[in-house]
């Protein structure tokens, strides 16, 4: 028995390199299992306890803070190259409680539970009094802006007809009065110029997703829309490592019907294809 008041766990510095390795493994795991929204990046390690694990290894019990980046979870850009969403863009924080097993020098995530929350309106106003605040993604004006932007995009497209997959975030801009929206689209088997009945279009078997940013501005007697979309290169479906050690196909319909498949564990670098701009 060890001397002194043995509490069962070891304490490490939150900035200990081993602690950071465990935290980065947890963030990577969380990002690979997000089904919508944006990748998160490690901001701060709040707490860490290291428990011995029988018969081998040790378990890092941690609390970590993350920040939303501007990279969508379907974006193959490596996390290290993803800019953090700034305060004036209405930042979003994540709070995670994770258990990470270290065994034979390897980190494996056993569990992860995260809650995300936007910065308070008061805090945004402090740094940027005129900045637009996040609004619910199902806001009527937001949905209209996304649909109008996608229609404009398809009207200018010489390729596939794209369908709306997800509205990822949106802000109502006070001056000039406009709606800013970021959304995900997916290519269908229809040709954009020839579509007559959208309900007959099907998503491609090799899913091809795109990410769009649009601003819809109200004008006297009408509205104006500006949209830019980035189409991601088709990504192979790879088995996703699970906490219980089994592998699961990312797009397995038994798990998440009709949900976009998460990006691969090691996405190819520099695989972005820039689509048309309207």
């Amino acid at each position: 028995a060890p001397h002194g008041p043995w509490v069962g766990y070891l304490v490490l510095n939150c900035d200990d390199p081993e602690t950071e390795q465990a935290a980065l493994a947890a963030v990577d795991y969380v990002n690979r299992h997000l089904l919508w929204g944006f990748k998160h990046i490690l901001n701060q390690i709040d707490k860490v306890r290291v428990w011995p694990r029988r018969p081998f290894g040790e378990v890092f019990e941690m609390e970590i803070d993350t920040l939303e980046t501007t990279c969508h979870v379907l974006d193959p850009t490596p996390l290290a190259n993803c800019p953090v969403r700034q305060l004036h863009e209405h930042a979003v924080e994540g709070d995670c409680k994770v258990h990470v097993l270290k065994q034979d020098g390897q980190f494996h995530v056993l569990s992860a539970k995260c809650d995300s929350s936007p910065d308070s309106a008061e805090d945004v106003r402090k740094v940027c009094p005129g900045c637009a605040l996040l609004v619910p993604r199902n806001n009527t004006a937001v949905v209209h802006a996304a649909e109008a932007a996608l229609a404009a995009f398809n009207a200018q497209s010489n390729g596939s007809y794209f369908q709306l997959v997800e509205i990822s975030r949106a802000q109502l801009v006070p001056l000039p009065e406009s709606t800013y929206v970021e959304f995900v689209v997916a290519a269908t088997d229809c040709v954009a110029k020839e579509v007559t009945d959208q309900s007959q279009c099907n998503l491609l078997a090799d899913k091809q997703y795109g990410f769009c940013k649009a601003t819809l501005t109200k004008k006297l007697g009408g509205e104006e829309v500006a949209v830019t979309c980035t189409v991601f290169q088709t990504q192979p479906v790879v088995p996703q490592p699970q906490p219980d050690g089994t592998n699961q196909t990312a797009s397995s319909p038994a798990v998440v019907p009709d949900a976009p498949s998460p990006p691969p564990a090691s996405p190819p670098a520099a695989s972005l294809v820039v689509g048309p701009m309207v």
Partner: peptide, 27 residues
């Protein structure tokens, strides 16, 4: 620590430092 010469000063492991550094900004 300040001590008289010849007087032993208790030294132990530094307490762990948590929370860790903020990499970007605090929300």
């Amino acid at each position: 620590s300040v001590a008289q010469p010849g007087v032993a000063v208790a030294t132990g492991p530094a307490p762990p430092v948590c929370p860790g550094r903020i990499r970007y900004f605090k929300v």
